[in-house]
Amino acid sequence: MSIELLLALITGAALFGVGVYGALSQTNLVMIMMGVELILAGAMVNLVAFWRYLHPDNPAGQMFVLIIMTVMAIEMAVGFGVAIARFRAKGSVEMEEATELKG
């Protein structure tokens, strides 16, 4: 296995770990979204590394990266839409206060 591939995969793993910590530990909706962005970034690094070091002749690998970028953009758009609606209704986007659906 190439060292470059391993380095890229370790970077992806680290970004994923930091993202999981951020998404679980933050109380603000926008900060939680930042954690999710880092998780997706970790996935993206892996996809680029797999394309480059395992199948550089198959452009489908790059296409998957474009799909992840789309998911990131959708997550941002919907997340900010929800944040605006929440802020308008409750005056805050603190998720500890969002207990309406709690069983």
Binding site: L9, G12, A13, F16, G17, G19, V20, Y21, L24
Partner: peptide, 13 residues
Amino acid sequence: SLGAGIVSFVAAV
């Protein structure tokens, strides 16, 4: 959260 982050990092590595 820190535990979950470290476990997911170690598993992925």
